[in-house]
Design a protein around this nucleic acid. Structure first.
Lengths: 210, 210
DNA sequence: GAAAACTATTTTACTAGTAAAATACATTGT
DNA sequence: ACAATGTATTTTACTAGTAAAATAGTTTTC
């Protein structure tokens, strides 16, 4: 599949489900194929030598995360804040003391620069404020205004309810198993990312791999 | 910074693990607490009325996705492409026929505009090219150059190997269970997002919820 | 057969995020 | 004490992504 001018290919979009789905051992279960099944099936056609097993989990994690972001952006748009702002508000809300911008960057896995931006917006919207720490002039602490507090307290329950509904397609036992496996994976991610903690701010450069 | 009061709070950062971890039923298992355990523990202190169960799965999915993106960006930087470009190259590579920009936008869950941008970059880098379809002058098809083909064929295995290593913290059985649960969740996401398919391009406006 | 409606792609104008530099304060070593 | 080093935050310059408008081609309808 390379050169050639003006061709008219563009045939069968994707080996759609059913056709060549992955080995679903259990003969009784009528499992449906999702986008990742289709993707893996395509790979097995063009590169049968590649073992795409890991895509089965990590491809799905990435796609679910993307869908969740898109779906809950819709939810948040209804109350007039962005996901980035929501994340800051909820991180401040749940913290036991007033967090610093660096604290927020750390727990939200974002850069300090992006936290500064979000805080400026939140202050402008009257939802949060920064106060200079009197003991150390470099740090500031972030506080919710009354408006910010009631906004986040109103916004959390629908978010949780949405997630709960989505999760209800799994049984409680499946959810518990899923959570346990995800915890193990998240711990491993945190370990891997911790391993290459060295330069300023939170630069990203080490290969961290192979 | 601008305004204000000068306070001196900023106490206990976060109810760190151990202290108030979630109910880990099994007394024998020495499970470690991850960032999501810490977050849920904080919530249970300030809003004990909220049921944050859903965060146990979806919070982890979101964080794992974020960590994965950051980790594999490091990997890709080593071969000189961005994740966005990698995604396009691999989608073209695995497709049975040459995909159109719209096909790519759809399978990559991105906007058409962003695909156009990535294609311009890939063409500029000599890794892909667009050819106008001779039957329908509106559509174009995307093809890999020889350089693009060998680049993606070189880039896939290390990505897969990285994911495989990460996944190896779970047993094969756990991985299979995990994949099955994630498939169900992904199908549900796809269903929910499909439900509100109506306006042009892929606008995002309906509440899709509650 | 040509206006109206539709579709695929690109362009435009804008937003969010980042790395690196700049700023401002604090701490350490001598 | 004070220069050197370190740290928290912000600013700057830039990249990637998007919605909506613009462009260009196609199909429908009358």
């Amino acid at each position: 599949m390379e050169p050639l001018t003006h061709q008219t290919d563009r045939e069968a979009e994707a080996e759609l489900p059913g056709a060549d789905s992955p080995d679903l051992g259990h003969p009784g279960r009528p499992r449906h194929a999702d986008a990742v099944d289709a993707i893996r099936s395509e790979w097995s056609d063009v590169r049968p030598d590649l073992d795409t097993d890991p895509i089965g989990t990590f491809g799905r994690v990435l796609r679910i995360a993307r869908h969740l972001a898109l779906l809950s952006d819709d939810l948040l748009a209804g109350i007039g804040i962005s996901r980035g702002e929501f994340d800051v508000l909820s991180a401040v809300r749940r913290a036991s003391g007033a967090p610093t911008p660096s604290d927020l960057a750390r727990t939200l896995l974002a850069s300090n620069a992006s936290i500064t931006k979000r805080l400026v917006q939140l202050e402008r919207a009257g939802l949060a404020e920064r106060r200079r720490d009197s003991r150390d002039g470099r740090v500031s602490t972030v506080w919710l205004t009354d408006a910010g507090l009631s906004l986040i307290d109103d916004a959390m329950p629908p978010q949780l309810e949405f997630d709960r509904r989505l999760g209800s397609v799994l049984s409680p036992a499946q959810n518990a198993e899923l959570e346990a496996s995800l915890r193990i994976l998240l711990l491993e991610c945190e370990r891997l990312r911790g391993e290459r903690e060295n330069s300023t701010d939170q630069a990203v450069q080490l290969p961290a791999t192979t």
